[in-house]
Every structure is written in C-alpha cells, then in structure tokens.
Amino acid sequence: MTAVIEITQDFTACYALRHKVFVQEQGVPESEELDAHDASATHLLAWQNHAPIGTARIVFDGDLAKIGRVCVLPDLRGTGLGADLIRAALAIARDTPGIATVKLGAQIQALGFYEKLGFSATGPVYDDAGIDHRDMVMELA
C-alpha cells in the first residue's frame, strides 16, 4: 500500500468517507455518525493518487486517547491500510504528553484485527448504532 496518512483539516473528505462506510454501507443513522467530538478531534486522512481512501479520528480526554471512526473504502480492505491508520493514530497518542491509555470501541468482527495491533478487549459487548461493539484498550509504556 502506497498511501499517505496525515493529520488533516479536510473534514469534508473525512465525513464523506465515513458517510459511505458507516451510513450507506453499515446503516448507521447519520444523526449518530457525526457528533460533538468531531470539532475537537484530531482527524487522520489516508490518500492514494490524490484520492481519500481511509480515515480515523483521535479524541483526547485527560490521560486517554480514544481512536474512533476508523474506516477504509471497501475495495482497499485487507491491504494493510486499516492497520496503518491505527499505527499512525497510536504514534500521535504516544507523542502526546500525558497520554497513558488508548481506547477504542471495536465492532465485534474486528476484535482480532485490533488484538493483532496490541489492543485487549475489556468489558461486555454493547450496542452502538445497531452494531455490536466491545471496548478495547492499550496501555502505553
């Protein structure tokens, strides 16, 4: 994968990717997909050939960094791009003073993906926008 991943202010591109994946593909209500955290989050955007292909965001709260809204276009899944987005978010969290823990809410079918990246599942399964999720955490050294 020859994608470029960078922090972005191009919220339109991030929201368009999220709309395609979460709203159109997965049926998440648009009213739940966008939230108040978007205004203060650090947004990552993956590009390939000048086209947006994946995104994620990080919300910082005290000593916690919460990675969320991770999505990759359907035809690029399985290429390593999702893992690259998570590694980029983890690098930002590690470089942010005071961050001790990284957390995310994983869709159940993605638990193994996040475990391979070093996250551990915690707590019960819960419903988020009609999709079963489970929290996952990583303690930063």
Rank of each mutant, 00 (worst) to 15 (best):
C71L: 11
P74F: 01
A36I: 13
D38P: 01
R87N: 13
F60S: 00
P97S: 06
L81P: 04
A13F: 06
D63F: 05
I86M: 14
H43V: 00
I58D: 00
G82M: 10
I86K: 11
A56S: 15
K103V: 14
E6C: 08
Q107L: 09
K20R: 14
G123W: 11
I86E: 05
A89Q: 01
T79Y: 05
E32N: 05
I92L: 15
E115T: 08
A106I: 06
A110G: 02
L73C: 03
R77P: 05
L17S: 07
A110R: 11
R18I: 09
R18Q: 06
L17T: 08
A93C: 14
V28T: 12
R87G: 01
L111Q: 15
R87W: 01
I92F: 08
L90H: 00
V59D: 11
R87L: 13
V28P: 06
W47F: 11
V23L: 11
L73G: 02
Q9F: 01
G118F: 13
I58V: 14
L64W: 05
D75E: 15
G112L: 04
V28S: 06
G105V: 04
Q24D: 12
A88N: 05
P52F: 03
G80R: 12
N49K: 12
L34I: 13
Q107W: 10
F113K: 01
F113R: 02
P74M: 05
A39E: 15
A56H: 08
H37A: 13
F119I: 10
K66F: 04
T101S: 01
G68A: 05
G62S: 11
T8V: 01
A36G: 06
A121T: 15
I108H: 12
N49Q: 13
V28A: 09
Q9I: 05
E33P: 01
E115I: 00
W47L: 14
A65P: 11
L81H: 07
G105N: 14
S40F: 02
G62R: 13
I7Q: 14
I108A: 13
A56G: 10
P29M: 02
G118M: 09
T12W: 01
D63I: 07
T122F: 07
G62E: 13
G80E: 03
I7A: 10
C14H: 02
L85S: 08
E30N: 09
A89C: 15
E33W: 04
V72A: 12
H43T: 00
E6R: 15
P52T: 00
D63E: 12
D95R: 03
L64H: 06
E6M: 03
L44E: 11
V21W: 06
E6D: 13
I67Q: 00
K66P: 04
A41Y: 06
F11P: 00
R94E: 14
P74G: 09
Q107V: 10
